[in-house]
Write a protein that binds this DNA or RNA. Structure first.
Lengths: 120, 120
DNA sequence: CGATCATATGCCTTTATGGGAATATGTCAA
DNA sequence: TTGACATATTCCCATAAAGGCATATGATCG
Protein backbone atom coordinates (compact mmCIF):
# COMPACT_ATOMS: atom_id res chain seq x y z
CA UNK A 1 0.00 0.00 0.00
CA UNK A 2 1.51 3.32 -1.00
CA UNK A 3 1.66 6.31 1.23
CA UNK A 4 -1.63 8.05 1.91
CA UNK A 5 -2.51 10.72 -0.62
CA UNK A 6 -1.25 14.21 0.11
CA UNK A 7 -4.83 15.36 -0.21
CA UNK A 8 -5.97 13.06 2.57
CA UNK A 9 -5.76 15.64 5.33
CA UNK A 10 -3.90 18.69 6.53
CA UNK A 11 -1.15 16.56 8.06
CA UNK A 12 -0.27 15.04 4.73
CA UNK A 13 -0.63 18.29 2.84
CA UNK A 14 1.59 20.20 5.20
CA UNK A 15 4.33 17.57 5.16
CA UNK A 16 5.66 19.12 1.96
CA UNK A 17 7.96 22.01 2.85
CA UNK A 18 7.02 24.12 -0.15
CA UNK A 19 3.41 23.98 0.88
CA UNK A 20 4.39 25.21 4.31
CA UNK A 21 6.28 28.05 2.63
CA UNK A 22 3.14 28.98 0.75
CA UNK A 23 1.18 29.03 3.98
CA UNK A 24 3.85 31.18 5.59
CA UNK A 25 3.78 33.59 2.66
CA UNK A 26 0.01 33.88 2.86
CA UNK A 27 0.18 34.59 6.58
CA UNK A 28 2.89 37.21 6.17
CA UNK A 29 0.70 38.93 3.59
CA UNK A 30 -2.21 39.05 6.01
CA UNK A 31 -3.94 35.90 4.86
CA UNK A 32 -4.42 36.27 1.12
CA UNK A 33 -2.35 36.52 -2.05
CA UNK A 34 -2.68 36.05 -5.77
CA UNK A 35 -0.82 33.22 -7.46
CA UNK A 36 1.59 35.61 -9.14
CA UNK A 37 2.50 37.16 -5.82
CA UNK A 38 3.26 33.76 -4.34
CA UNK A 39 5.36 32.84 -7.34
CA UNK A 40 7.28 36.08 -6.96
CA UNK A 41 7.63 35.73 -3.20
CA UNK A 42 8.95 32.18 -3.27
CA UNK A 43 10.77 32.13 -6.59
CA UNK A 44 9.18 28.85 -7.61
CA UNK A 45 7.90 27.95 -11.08
CA UNK A 46 4.29 28.92 -11.58
CA UNK A 47 3.01 25.39 -12.33
CA UNK A 48 4.65 24.14 -9.15
CA UNK A 49 2.88 26.77 -7.10
CA UNK A 50 -0.45 26.11 -8.80
CA UNK A 51 -0.20 22.39 -8.09
CA UNK A 52 0.68 22.93 -4.46
CA UNK A 53 -2.17 25.39 -4.11
CA UNK A 54 -4.44 22.74 -5.55
CA UNK A 55 -3.46 20.33 -2.80
CA UNK A 56 -3.87 22.94 -0.09
CA UNK A 57 -7.25 23.80 -1.46
CA UNK A 58 -8.40 20.21 -1.65
CA UNK A 59 -7.76 19.69 2.04
CA UNK A 60 -9.37 23.00 2.96
CA UNK A 61 -6.25 24.83 4.06
CA UNK A 62 -6.92 27.61 1.56
CA UNK A 63 -9.85 28.89 -0.43
CA UNK A 64 -9.85 30.53 -3.85
CA UNK A 65 -11.66 33.53 -5.15
CA UNK A 66 -11.64 34.68 -8.73
CA UNK A 67 -10.73 38.32 -9.21
CA UNK A 68 -10.79 39.00 -12.90
CA UNK A 69 -7.96 37.12 -14.48
CA UNK A 70 -6.28 36.70 -11.12
CA UNK A 71 -7.12 34.24 -8.40
CA UNK A 72 -6.75 35.14 -4.78
CA UNK A 73 -5.90 32.33 -2.38
CA UNK A 74 -6.86 32.85 1.22
CA UNK A 75 -5.64 30.92 4.23
CA UNK A 76 -8.35 28.93 6.07
CA UNK A 77 -7.10 28.61 9.63
CA UNK A 78 -9.61 25.99 10.78
CA UNK A 79 -7.63 23.12 9.34
CA UNK A 80 -4.48 24.46 10.93
CA UNK A 81 -6.34 24.68 14.20
CA UNK A 82 -7.16 20.98 13.98
CA UNK A 83 -3.47 20.11 13.80
CA UNK A 84 -2.72 22.62 16.51
CA UNK A 85 -5.28 21.00 18.77
CA UNK A 86 -3.71 17.60 18.28
CA UNK A 87 -0.31 18.96 19.27
CA UNK A 88 -1.63 21.09 22.09
CA UNK A 89 -2.62 17.85 23.74
CA UNK A 90 1.08 17.23 24.35
CA UNK A 91 2.01 20.74 25.37
CA UNK A 92 2.42 19.82 29.01
CA UNK A 93 4.97 17.17 28.12
CA UNK A 94 7.63 19.68 27.15
CA UNK A 95 6.62 22.41 29.55
CA UNK A 96 6.82 19.92 32.40
CA UNK A 97 10.13 18.74 31.10
CA UNK A 98 11.43 22.30 30.98
CA UNK A 99 10.08 22.91 34.48
CA UNK A 100 11.99 19.93 35.72
CA UNK A 101 15.19 21.19 34.14
CA UNK A 102 14.65 24.66 35.55
CA UNK A 103 13.86 23.38 39.02
CA UNK A 104 16.93 21.22 38.97
CA UNK A 105 19.04 24.23 37.96
CA UNK A 106 17.55 26.32 40.77
CA UNK A 107 18.05 23.56 43.30
CA UNK A 108 21.68 23.20 42.26
CA UNK A 109 22.19 26.94 42.61
CA UNK A 110 20.58 26.99 46.07
CA UNK A 111 22.74 24.10 47.17
CA UNK A 112 25.87 25.78 45.87
CA UNK A 113 24.98 29.04 47.69
CA UNK A 114 24.33 27.38 51.04
CA UNK A 115 27.50 25.35 50.90
CA UNK A 116 30.97 26.63 51.92
CA UNK A 117 32.87 27.97 48.89
CA UNK A 118 35.34 25.73 47.24
CA UNK A 119 38.12 27.16 45.08
CA UNK A 120 39.58 24.42 42.82
CA UNK B 1 11.19 13.79 -7.93
CA UNK B 2 9.28 11.63 -5.46
CA UNK B 3 7.78 12.84 -2.26
CA UNK B 4 10.18 13.71 0.54
CA UNK B 5 11.11 10.73 2.68
CA UNK B 6 8.96 10.04 5.71
CA UNK B 7 12.13 10.20 7.76
CA UNK B 8 12.87 13.73 6.62
CA UNK B 9 11.29 15.45 9.58
CA UNK B 10 8.51 15.24 12.14
CA UNK B 11 5.98 16.68 9.70
CA UNK B 12 6.48 13.85 7.27
CA UNK B 13 6.66 11.20 9.96
CA UNK B 14 3.47 12.32 11.62
CA UNK B 15 1.54 12.45 8.36
CA UNK B 16 0.91 8.71 8.68
CA UNK B 17 -2.14 8.16 10.90
CA UNK B 18 -0.85 4.96 12.46
CA UNK B 19 2.23 6.78 13.61
CA UNK B 20 0.03 9.38 15.24
CA UNK B 21 -1.86 6.58 16.95
CA UNK B 22 1.41 5.25 18.32
CA UNK B 23 2.27 8.68 19.65
CA UNK B 24 -1.18 8.94 21.22
CA UNK B 25 -0.79 5.53 22.82
CA UNK B 26 2.59 6.48 24.25
CA UNK B 27 1.17 9.68 25.68
CA UNK B 28 -1.82 7.91 27.22
CA UNK B 29 0.60 5.52 28.89
CA UNK B 30 2.55 8.38 30.41
CA UNK B 31 5.22 8.63 27.76
CA UNK B 32 6.69 5.16 27.38
CA UNK B 33 5.65 1.67 26.29
CA UNK B 34 7.17 -1.58 25.15
CA UNK B 35 6.58 -2.74 21.59
CA UNK B 36 4.31 -5.51 22.73
CA UNK B 37 2.12 -3.12 24.64
CA UNK B 38 1.75 -0.91 21.58
CA UNK B 39 0.89 -3.89 19.43
CA UNK B 40 -1.74 -4.92 21.96
CA UNK B 41 -3.10 -1.40 22.38
CA UNK B 42 -3.51 -0.73 18.66
CA UNK B 43 -4.20 -4.21 17.36
CA UNK B 44 -1.69 -3.85 14.56
CA UNK B 45 0.73 -6.53 13.34
CA UNK B 46 4.02 -6.45 15.18
CA UNK B 47 6.21 -5.83 12.10
CA UNK B 48 4.04 -2.88 11.16
CA UNK B 49 4.49 -1.35 14.59
CA UNK B 50 8.22 -1.97 14.57
CA UNK B 51 8.61 -0.29 11.22
CA UNK B 52 6.59 2.73 12.25
CA UNK B 53 8.60 2.99 15.45
CA UNK B 54 11.72 2.94 13.33
CA UNK B 55 10.51 5.97 11.40
CA UNK B 56 9.51 7.82 14.58
CA UNK B 57 12.88 7.06 16.05
CA UNK B 58 14.80 8.22 13.01
CA UNK B 59 13.20 11.64 13.17
CA UNK B 60 13.70 11.87 16.91
CA UNK B 61 10.07 11.65 17.95
CA UNK B 62 10.80 8.66 20.17
CA UNK B 63 13.84 7.09 21.77
CA UNK B 64 14.48 3.45 22.54
CA UNK B 65 15.88 1.77 25.57
CA UNK B 66 16.65 -1.91 25.84
CA UNK B 67 15.14 -3.65 28.83
CA UNK B 68 16.11 -7.27 28.65
CA UNK B 69 14.36 -8.83 25.75
CA UNK B 70 11.92 -5.94 25.63
CA UNK B 71 12.43 -2.50 24.18
CA UNK B 72 10.84 0.52 25.71
CA UNK B 73 9.97 3.39 23.39
CA UNK B 74 9.69 6.80 24.93
CA UNK B 75 8.10 9.90 23.47
CA UNK B 76 10.50 12.79 22.83
CA UNK B 77 8.35 15.91 22.97
CA UNK B 78 10.92 18.32 21.52
CA UNK B 79 10.16 17.36 17.96
CA UNK B 80 6.47 17.75 18.62
CA UNK B 81 7.20 21.15 20.09
CA UNK B 82 8.82 22.22 16.84
CA UNK B 83 5.64 21.47 14.93
CA UNK B 84 3.61 23.08 17.66
CA UNK B 85 5.66 26.25 17.42
CA UNK B 86 5.10 26.44 13.69
CA UNK B 87 1.35 26.18 14.18
CA UNK B 88 1.26 28.47 17.20
CA UNK B 89 2.43 31.20 14.84
CA UNK B 90 -1.05 31.14 13.30
CA UNK B 91 -3.01 30.84 16.51
CA UNK B 92 -4.24 34.42 16.34
CA UNK B 93 -5.74 33.80 12.92
CA UNK B 94 -8.51 31.62 14.23
CA UNK B 95 -8.95 33.36 17.56
CA UNK B 96 -9.28 36.70 15.78
CA UNK B 97 -11.65 35.19 13.31
CA UNK B 98 -13.87 33.95 16.11
CA UNK B 99 -13.67 37.37 17.76
CA UNK B 100 -14.79 39.02 14.58
CA UNK B 101 -17.75 36.70 14.22
CA UNK B 102 -18.75 37.29 17.82
CA UNK B 103 -18.39 41.06 17.53
CA UNK B 104 -20.46 41.10 14.39
CA UNK B 105 -23.20 39.14 16.09
CA UNK B 106 -23.21 41.57 19.02
CA UNK B 107 -23.26 44.57 16.74
CA UNK B 108 -26.22 43.18 14.82
CA UNK B 109 -28.07 42.57 18.04
CA UNK B 110 -27.38 46.13 19.27
CA UNK B 111 -28.55 47.60 15.98
CA UNK B 112 -31.73 45.57 16.02
CA UNK B 113 -32.51 46.69 19.57
CA UNK B 114 -31.98 50.43 18.94
CA UNK B 115 -34.00 50.46 15.74
CA UNK B 116 -37.81 50.79 15.53
CA UNK B 117 -39.42 47.39 15.14
CA UNK B 118 -40.37 46.33 11.71
CA UNK B 119 -42.95 43.63 11.11
CA UNK B 120 -42.65 42.23 7.56
C1' DC C 1 -11.60 38.95 -33.58
C1' DG C 2 -6.61 38.52 -32.22
C1' DA C 3 -3.07 39.18 -28.87
C1' DT C 4 -1.57 38.96 -24.27
C1' DC C 5 -1.53 38.06 -19.58
C1' DA C 6 -2.75 34.83 -15.45
C1' DT C 7 -3.43 30.41 -14.04
C1' DA C 8 -4.41 25.48 -14.48
C1' DT C 9 -3.61 20.92 -16.38
C1' DG C 10 -1.41 17.11 -18.78
C1' DC C 11 2.40 13.92 -19.56
C1' DC C 12 6.66 11.59 -18.14
C1' DT C 13 10.14 9.78 -15.02
C1' DT C 14 12.21 8.51 -10.73
C1' DT C 15 11.60 6.92 -6.30
C1' DA C 16 9.94 5.87 -1.51
C1' DT C 17 6.00 4.13 0.60
C1' DG C 18 3.23 0.74 3.57
C1' DG C 19 1.35 -3.74 3.97
C1' DG C 20 1.96 -8.80 4.31
C1' DA C 21 4.39 -12.89 5.13
C1' DA C 22 8.44 -15.04 6.22
C1' DT C 23 12.58 -14.95 8.56
C1' DA C 24 16.57 -13.14 11.08
C1' DT C 25 18.51 -11.37 15.47
C1' DG C 26 18.83 -11.22 20.19
C1' DT C 27 17.58 -12.50 25.03
C1' DC C 28 16.16 -15.18 28.77
C1' DA C 29 15.16 -19.73 31.18
C1' DA C 30 15.99 -24.73 32.12
C1' DT D 1 22.76 -26.11 24.32
C1' DT D 2 18.07 -25.97 23.17
C1' DG D 3 14.06 -23.82 22.98
C1' DA D 4 10.44 -20.14 23.91
C1' DC D 5 9.89 -15.35 23.56
C1' DA D 6 10.35 -10.26 21.86
C1' DT D 7 11.54 -7.47 18.32
C1' DA D 8 13.77 -6.22 13.98
C1' DT D 9 14.65 -6.93 9.16
C1' DT D 10 14.17 -8.68 4.81
C1' DC D 11 11.57 -9.22 0.05
C1' DC D 12 7.81 -8.16 -3.04
C1' DC D 13 4.13 -5.24 -4.91
C1' DA D 14 1.07 -1.49 -6.38
C1' DT D 15 0.87 3.23 -6.16
C1' DA D 16 1.12 8.05 -5.97
C1' DA D 17 4.28 11.75 -5.44
C1' DA D 18 6.93 16.01 -7.28
C1' DG D 19 9.51 18.37 -10.76
C1' DG D 20 10.02 20.04 -15.55
C1' DC D 21 8.14 21.35 -19.60
C1' DA D 22 4.62 22.07 -22.81
C1' DT D 23 0.14 23.29 -23.44
C1' DA D 24 -4.76 24.27 -22.41
C1' DT D 25 -8.17 27.33 -20.42
C1' DG D 26 -9.85 31.74 -19.33
C1' DA D 27 -10.13 36.80 -18.91
C1' DT D 28 -8.95 41.45 -20.60
C1' DC D 29 -7.73 44.89 -23.84
C1' DG D 30 -7.45 47.12 -28.43
Amino acid sequence: MPRAATTTDAFNAVAEPKRRMIIDALARAGGALGVGAIVAALGLPQPTVSKHLGVLREVGLVSVERAGQHRVYRLCPEELKAMYDWLKQYEQMWTHQLDRIKQRAERMQRDAASRPHRTT
